[in-house]
Write a protein that binds this DNA or RNA. Structure first.
Lengths: 237, 237
DNA sequence: CGTGGGCTTGATAGTCCTCAAGTCGGGTGG
DNA sequence: CCACCCGACTTGAGGACTATCAAGCCCACG
């Protein structure tokens, strides 16, 4: 008996295929098509082509975004090594977002029929896939909340904490020296700010001894304060 | 053979149980527990209790929201008659949002085991449920985009258009006289604005002949212009 | 070494918020 | 039936935050 909605607080569901049993691993192996390599800042999936494309990121970071009025863009989520790309869209059919590499990226393309087969014969895997999508949606809702309610300092604190925790969840990382490959403009586009103001706000966070972003790395100097700014109850750190 | 990610552009997936076949209808009937009635502005599901609660709205509107830093709130989505409440949370296990009635509300509670049973023995229904969650997530991403990229006029235009289209999708409604039971504060909390500024912006939209909100009803006077403001390509109206 | 992209910083302006007072309308109790 | 009352709406003035625009700097890279 697999558990659905059993209350596990597994918000950062990753490694979808790990410990799924023979069926899941076999499916994964059988449906891996090819490997792609991208330099930084290239289109992996264009707006509209989603639905057939399904990738698993082997190395590097990416992000998915929507364009607004053919002018600006909103980054919806960042994609870390080990995570899946295009799963949510594969379930809905089509969505209007694109995916781009943030750093040099290596990903393996999966056959989108994986999803259909999972639903047909691997309910346990299907549940994992759905949980994955729900966790993605949860992150977007968190981001929406901090953008709708918070000022620039709180938004940046949230972004730092969120990306730090996602990395810490999957591997041991030093809070004082975490990978953080976003440029100013990426933070701006994710948080509804401008690059210039992101820069000013980062300065303030550094001066206040909260956190430092430098050389594509994040150094968290005061985790409790960062979490407080990000709107996270201190108990949940 | 049921279709998964087949490219159907069914973004407003509703009536999840309609035409699912015997299994789906039987499940729905068997797992309907009781009916609840709420006056306007009452808590239907509190933050954290989600996961076991699953409702289907029979009459009235609701909305789900998150609180930020114990002070303000972000409305994530509105819930219209016929729609499901708590499904996304039932899949993930727990999320930190609450659900409240916007108008007087009648809803029937469903047994959350519906989800588990669907995955075990009704793959077609499971796919529909997942599509439903994906469509919800899609709406949240649209909202995030317009809040991150647009000004007050564009945000309000988006909200009007979005709620109009969701109603038009399920029943014939007059664009010149659509139900729109949100107060100023609801629009503000959904769009990252203040009630006062929502009011000023509504005035401008009325003076510009785009749309009028009055007496809990929306009157769209210039649909193409409204859509353009909302960031929707004119072809997609 | 030249070059280009990203970063940094300043000055200015605009959007939106805050606070507050006044108005309106619907519901309630006398 | 009327007076009251409370919540929602409306509008104004002032201020805070963030955007815009622009220029110079630094560094990585060819």
């Amino acid at each position: 008996m697999f558990d659905v909605g059993s209350g596990r607080r597994d918000r950062y569901t990753q490694d979808v295929f790990r410990s799924v049993g023979d069926g899941g691993s076999a499916l994964l192996e059988r449906l891996t098509l090819r490997s792609v390599n991208l330099p930084a800042n290239r289109l992996l999936i264009g707006e509209g082509e989603i639905g057939n494309a399904l990738y698993r990121i082997a190395r590097g970071w990416g992000y998915r975004y929507r364009v607004f009025a053919d002018a600006s863009r909103q980054i919806l989520d960042f994609l870390l090594p080990g995570e899946l790309v295009g799963l949510g869209a594969a379930l809905l059919g089509v969505t209007d977002h694109s995916v781009r590499s943030l750093t040099p990226l290596r990903a393996s393309a999966l056959d989108a029929r994986l999803v259909a087969e999972a639903f047909r014969g691997e309910p346990e895997l299907a549940v994992r896939l759905v949980r994955y999508v729900a966790a993605e949606a949860d992150r977007v809702e968190e981001l929406l909340t901090v953008i709708g309610c918070g000022d620039a300092v709180e938004r940046l604190a949230f972004l730092m904490l969120s990306l730090y925790r996602r990395q810490a969840h999957r591997s041991r990382v030093d809070p004082l020296d975490t990978p953080f490959p976003l440029r100013r403009q990426h933070m701006a586009d994710a948080l509804g700010l401008t690059g210039a103001h992101v820069n000013r706000t980062l300065n303030r966070l550094r001066q206040d001894g909260v956190a430092i972003v430098e050389n594509r790395r994040l150094s968290i100097r005061d985790l409790p304060r960062l979490a407080a700014l990000a709107g996270v109850p201190t108990a949940a750190i």
